[in-house]
Design a protein around this nucleic acid. Structure first.
Lengths: 199, 199
DNA sequence: GTTCCCATGTAACCCGTTACATGATTTT
DNA sequence: AAAATCATGTAACGGGTTACATGGGAAC
């Protein structure tokens, strides 16, 4: 096995983004915000820079300095063959298993006993409207990448985001209705069609 | 403002779980795994213990030792009035805004160019089947809490999970089909009904 | 007789976030 | 004149994970 101690996930995220072409740390941050940031999270700037240094030391990326007159000088990084190999190895050898959801809204709802009902409803309404906004954003993303190479993968990643957002909206509608009418000890009727149960 | 420098989220998670009754660190870990673990993530054991110590020092929890003959002694924690106040304050004053999704599967797909197509398909198939399993788990959770107080909140939190899982399954079906037939530069027809676009 | 359950903790490590620091050029 | 864009870094802190450590009783 050529597995050399495996780096943190962020390193592979940066490496993966680097596989799209030679870029500066600054460029990578932009790219990350508009791509992996939408379904995984975008590393902060300072971490991108430090990961780039590490990748460079490991021989996974090569760097070259570019002097500019009208703008600050910059350092461009390219993925090397060894870097590509490491990326591929990581993609194959890490198990996907459990996608971790960190839902702050659900935390609030789960501890809903301690919150004002109207406040909770407002929270869910906010959640619903940000779901609408997110759909717009993802469709924008799709439109922007249309015609570019590797579109299939962007199409699929945005697709899951859009599906989730639709699910969020439907759930929010029913949650709001319930939060307005039901009391905490509400027991649902398991025979009726209910949110998430149908289909 | 009584806001005293706000603790990490995990502290409030533990505090919230403590609001369900007097418990030991061990008990809390079990509880966390079967509740917040399903939609937020369960803190590791050692962190629960250290958070409990902190909560105790802050006066947010009170502790008492219970000696046992047939089992190891244990320390039981209860939430105090100050703890309850801190929890309520946190619930009201933290903005929910953006639920962060950390999808490893989507990372793989986004960097799908570097992966074997068959491997990718297998990955999505695994994702789909774990979605089915997750639905079972959540319905089990619902059944277990039926009749207990505060059921509404469990119903709502599991509801979103179930909705997401259904969305995952539908998306996975279409993703698998596409991954088997389309090439990387696939451009979809924006007029047809497509995954995530419909409705 | 090995494995699981109960029960609690310490120590090390490092990933990731926040804050600090700089500065020219272009846009509003 | 102020704000945003381009461009890169350092330093400090702490949250969260992993590994180490212990040990009796029950179940299979």
């Amino acid at each position: 096995m050529t597995t050399s101690k495996s780096l943190p996930k962020t390193a592979y995220v940066v490496l993966g983004l680097l596989s799209f072409g030679e870029q500066s740390g600054y460029d990578l941050k932009q790219l990350a915000d508009n791509s992996v940031g939408l379904f995984y999270g975008s590393p902060v700037r300072s971490q991108i820079y430090s990961e780039l240094r590490r990748l460079s030391e490991l021989g996974y990326a090569s760097e070259r300095e570019v002097e500019q007159d009208d703008r600050p000088d910059k350092r461009l990084y390219s993925i090397t063959n060894r870097g590509l190999a490491a990326l591929r190895e990581w993609l194959s050898n890490t198990n996907t298993s459990n996608d971790v959801i960190k839902s702050h809204l659900l935390l609030k709802i789960f501890f809903g006993k301690h919150m004002d009902r109207a406040e909770l409803v407002a929270e869910v309404e906010g959640y619903r409207s940000s779901a609408y906004e997110f759909i717009e954003l993802l469709q924008q993303t799709r439109a922007n990448c249309s015609g570019e190479p590797g579109t299939l993968f962007t199409y699929l990643t945005t697709g899951l985001g859009i599906s989730h957002a639709h699910a969020n909206i439907e759930w929010a509608d029913e949650a709001i209705a319930l939060l307005k009418t039901a009391d905490s000890d509400y027991s649902w009727n398991s025979t009726e069609s209910l949110p998430g149960t149908s289909k």
